[in-house]
């Protein structure tokens, strides 16, 4: 009986000891991992810091100006390219009257800044259909802008809208 008890205690003590040992190792490993992760975070943060500086450097307006002019043929936005939403319907009517088939049915939305398309409209190169497409698309955009961005009709009509039309250099 007494031997049993001793064995039991020894086993208990040993298992607790081993358990503790394993636990300690696990904790150590976790701590190592934590430290490593922290180090990694710091390295990444440093990287982000440096990249932010680079981002700012690459976004230097003078540089963007130069690149946009050289590769995209863009020029600074002119006041004539800016109007308010309220003035758009009249403008679009005028534009539609000047263009032939302005009533095309299915029309793809042009992406806002595809300068090529718009440039062609300006040059008068664009075919009738695509111009009509543009007018319809702009109409849609106007209603969408009014619906989404403005709290009221009056406010919508005062929203500044950038009508990016063509810059021929």
């Amino acid at each position: 009986m007494i031997r049993m008890m001793i064995v039991l205690w020894i086993v208990l003590a040993a298992s607790v000891g081993v358990g503790l040992f394993l636990l300690k190792h696990e904790v150590q490993a976790l701590e190592e991992q934590l430290a490593q992760t922290n180090r990694a975070i710091r390295v990444t943060q440093k990287g982000i810091h440096v990249l932010k500086a680079e981002w700012s450097f690459l976004n230097d307006p003078a540089r963007l100006h130069r690149l946009a002019a050289r590769h995209l043929g863009m020029t600074p936005l002119r006041p004539e390219q800016l109007t308010v939403a309220a003035a758009l319907p009249a403008m679009l009517d005028g534009l539609a009257r000047r263009l032939p088939s302005a009533t095309a049915g299915r029309v793809p939305l042009p992406t806002p800044a595809t300068t090529r398309n718009e440039r062609e409209v300006a040059r008068g190169n664009a075919g009738g259909r695509s111009s009509g497409t543009l007018v319809l698309a702009m109409r849609r955009a106007v209603s969408a802008v009014s619906a989404v961005k403005a709290p009221s009709v009056e406010a919508a009509s005062n929203l500044p809208v950038r009508v990016i039309m063509t810059t021929k250099r």
């Binding site: 600074p76 936005l77 002119r78 006041p79 004539e80 390219q81 800016l82 109007t83 308010v84 500044p160 809208v161 950038r162």
Partner: peptide, 12 residues
């Protein structure tokens, strides 16, 4: 003025 107003979103 002609360049800054459009940037600031002021319509003519």
């Amino acid at each position: 003025v002609a360049r800054m107003a459009p940037v600031l979103g002021i319509a003519p």
